[in-house]
Write a protein that binds this DNA or RNA. Structure first.
Lengths: 244, 244
DNA sequence: ACTATAATACTTGTATACAAGTATACTCGT
DNA sequence: ACGAGTATACTTGTATACAAGTATTATAGT
């Protein structure tokens, strides 16, 4: 109905106790970021409600959420899809760099034993995810890793920023991981190395290592951008074929 | 009905083409930040709808907004007011410092003539607001000043952060300005001096001056925190008297 | 007096209904 | 053929209705 080849892009198991509105938001987000819904498209509440077989209430809720995330622009008549270009991806990582730097400066003033413990656990979960080639789980843990760092300083407004950027980041990483999880083991080991570096930096409170790992992050992002671009290409090709 | 002595805290003229939901959000925000609605209170959609004589739809919308701003926590039964303590105010200014520093680093790479022009205009508007003792207008222009700086670099996610922090900041500054506008002319001139410094820093692209003005900002905030505290005291006294 | 259970009153989430406004398309007059 | 104006089909914003679930209170049994 929505898309013959791939009804739901967002893992349903992550939506166990989510409301209809959240589900729609997650699904729409994935469809926008993956390029399945092209930038510039105008979405109508009624059409979406019909498409997803729900009422306008949850649709409105979802659109508000996506609007907060800068994925759509709520206009007088319809919601215009903004989408995620390379520029936006760079910008979202600007923000992550910004807040993670801030968080690090706070972290080094406190006892980091607890957070290091948590991060190590997540790190090991990521290894298991790799072992069983579970791209979705890996993406989930990857995002959780950074979330754990950010939330550890109990800064309500930094947490707020994270909450607003997380969904887009999560969807983006999810798509990217699905794309190259099975082939590019080199990249994965590089990502794991970098996460190890993060833990080291926090554990030793060493600013130099932190800067190094943040920089490596940028390289990872570049890879992810390429992946997303590939993903969007593939999806649009699939769509073309569907039309035929 | 809402409050015998002061029906609306948020300037109605700023809500000319706002929806009911936005109005409710603005009003509730002011009531929470001013301390009229105490932290820990549980708000119910039905009660709010009855109180404001509107349906639950705009109330729900407003609560979602306030939840995004960390002023309330949406729980299973009711929305719990978090409020704005000194800690949160410090944190919101952490964020502003963070993003304004980031913006400055971007700004110095571009031509700043246009933004300097805009800032100068706003600066003059602020002077007029002082001249006519219009605290609300002054607060509006003050917020607009920073918004202009932040939006000037066209960074969608930095703008997003601004959009999410702006309402709280605006309400906070509004209350603070109303509190001491008539007495403390010294503070006002200090604020104006600081804004002049901001313009100088951007105009000359001088990092030293920028840091100086950002630091002065902190002093201003300290004053504002005192004002808010005073304001909350006064309002709660007024409430006590009302009860008698 | 106290506990367990049942009834009740409240909560949110979703669906539907309605009103006001806007863009599109069509018709009529020239 | 073409422009003005109207009709129509859409849009959102708000109100209301309903359903499912939760906390509270009252009641009954011991």
């Amino acid at each position: 109905m929505l898309n013959d080849t791939n009804d739901f892009l967002y893992p349903e198991k992550w939506l166990s106790k989510a409301s209809t509105g959240e589900r729609v938001a997650c699904e729409l987000r994935m469809r926008i970021i993956s390029g399945l819904i092209e930038s510039g498209t105008t979405l109508s509440e009624n059409k979406l409600a019909a498409e997803y077989n729900v009422s306008r209430s949850p649709i409105r809720e979802a659109l508000k959420v996506l609007s907060n995330e800068n994925l759509i622009r709520l206009e007088r008549m319809g919601a215009v899809v903004v989408g995620l270009t390379e520029k936006e991806i760079e910008e979202i990582y600007d923000v992550r760099l910004l807040i993670e730097t801030f968080v690090f400066e706070r972290l080094v003033k406190n006892d980091t034993a607890q957070v290091v413990r948590e991060l190590t656990k997540i790190f090991e979960m990521m290894q298991i995810a790799i072992k069983y080639k579970d791209a979705d789980e890996f993406a989930l843990q990857d995002v959780l890793f950074h979330e754990t760092i950010i939330r550890s300083i109990n800064h309500s407004y930094i947490t707020m920023i994270w909450n607003n950027t997380k969904p887009v980041m999560e969807s983006f990483i999810l798509l990217s991981m699905r794309m190259h999880f099975n082939e590019k083991y080199d990249d994965l080991s590089r990502i794991m190395k970098n996460h190890e570096l993060y833990i080291d930096a926090i554990s030793s409170k060493n600013r130099e290592i932190m800067i190094q790992s943040l920089h490596q992050n940028f390289d990872d992002v570049q890879g992810k951008v390429d992946d997303l671009w590939m993903s969007q290409q593939m999806l649009s090709k699939a769509r073309e074929q569907e039309k035929e």
